[in-house]
Design a binder for these strands. Structure first.
Lengths: 250, 250
DNA sequence: CGAACATTTCGCTCGCGGCCGAAGGATGCG
DNA sequence: CGCATCCTTCGGCCGCGAGCGAAATGTTCG
């Protein structure tokens, strides 16, 4: 055999994700928040001891980070790169026409709108991306997005300033580090797109995606659904999306 | 438990990758070429029957595509999305400072320069990206890259026209499909970056990355190393890189 | 056609790893 | 303090699936 190193490490990391219990935990953590071991046990559908073992492995592999708070231990995805890897795996799994997924009611809510780590996904996320593109505020190509000057102006008015720290710099994290000319590097705001696993179309990720999601939550247009990654559009949001983005979010 | 669907499907796909033999096969296929079942058996380090079973599973899951040619069966990664997912998993596995990897000689060649599906990675890939950024021909931010007008001019002179089909449109594949305004969408060439698993720094992927790799091969500056994803820089390449990109490729 | 080769199917073994119950820290609260 | 809660460690059970050898299928030659 030839390249041992990449094969085994790839297998190690994938095997950690490739267990139903652990995958359920990771899915639950995909909304970017931290959950306690007990909550994760519930999501995974296994007992506490089993959960503990899984979490130890995932933490050891730096897939999760842990923060102890009193007698609870809160686990979260260690880095944005982890979220990105998980998302790309999920889009793969949607590939085959295969057997139809049961599509429970809970599932349907997720398809409509959900968070994907720090940004919006589902039909809502795709619709927002489409809207920005249709207005020529954003141009997508090759897995990346470029905010046009008009788009930048709109976002500014809307309350998002990409050139400042609105997204808290949590994303992949270059741009500031690449050269010593960080001020110049992001002269034109960029963003990353992310292939939506339910819609099979791109939605907005990266700094822009995170800033948008945060801003919409803050504006009260959308809100998190308890105990789920699903997102609900408020009445104010319905009006707002129609008015500003030109679509009615179902 | 909450979201069954995403968890189980995520686990299914990850478990397929999370086996040493299969991961080795996938790693071997990461150079974008198609390999026969026999060759894959060799790379995986297992016997022919075992290999056959693995390949059947991977094909069934649409991770691989198969093409029969005579008495051989050639397998390749089914889509660019698969390559992207694998790459993101590999960058994850490099995260931990953990135990030092053995770093065999073969491995060292891969770290110096290798192909990553359809583009260049390793120190060479990173150096090219750095060079383009340093000359302000390319700006990186947020996992995406933007070719500046000067950069576009340089690439054109160099023999790469991003606005035409130099990359054969094999990448993630938006841009042409998103709106009906494909001609306008790529008014300013974009590209995707890819976090190098050995260097922990971004290199160029997407259309630009693929076009560059292809062009450098064609120019004879680099060539594939037999039976490996490693890439060797030719004498012509050494001179060329120093001349055009301003660095000596070791 | 028959020999050589590539790949698959079948039947089997065996070891890794997920799972739980019980017991052992750790932390908070009255 | 003493009890309740949250989490972990330990020991043991058990099933899934990777692996191989032998034989079947298919394909290219001479």
């Amino acid at each position: 055999m030839s390249n041992l190193v990449s094969g085994t490490t790839l297998a190690e990391i994938a095997a950690l994700i490739g267990d139903v219990a652990r995958a359920n935990m990771l899915s639950a953590l995909m909304d970017g928040r931290a959950l306690s071991a007990g909550e994760l046990a519930y999501h995974a559908g296994v007992g506490a001891p089993t959960t503990s073992g899984h979490l130890a492995k995932l933490t050891e592999a730096q897939i999760l980070a842990v923060e102890k708070q009193g007698r609870h231990r809160y686990y979260r995805l260690a880095t944005p790169a982890v979220a990105q890897a998980l998302e790309s795996l999920m889009s793969l799994s949607a590939e085959g026409p295969k057997r139809h997924r049961p599509t429970g009611p809970h599932d349907e809510a997720m398809r409509a709108a959900r968070t994907c780590y720090d940004h919006l996904a589902g039909r809502l996320g795709v619709a927002i991306a489409d809207s920005l593109v249709a207005r020529d505020w954003l141009r997508l190509a090759d897995g990346a997005g470029l905010v046009t000057p008009e788009g930048d102006r709109f976002l500014c008015e809307f309350g998002i300033d990409l050139n400042r720290g609105s997204g808290k710099g949590r994303t992949t994290g270059f741009g500031a580090r690449t050269g010593k000319r960080s001020h110049e590097t992001s002269a034109r705001p960029l963003c990353r797109t992310c292939l939506d696993w339910s819609e099979r179309r791109p939605h907005l990720a990266g700094r822009l995606g995170a800033a948008l999601c945060q801003h919409l939550l803050q504006k009260g247009w959308i809100e998190r659904v308890k105990d789920s990654r699903a997102i609900a559009v408020t009445p104010a949001g319905s009006a707002g999306f129609a008015d500003v983005f030109g679509f009615v979010p179902e």
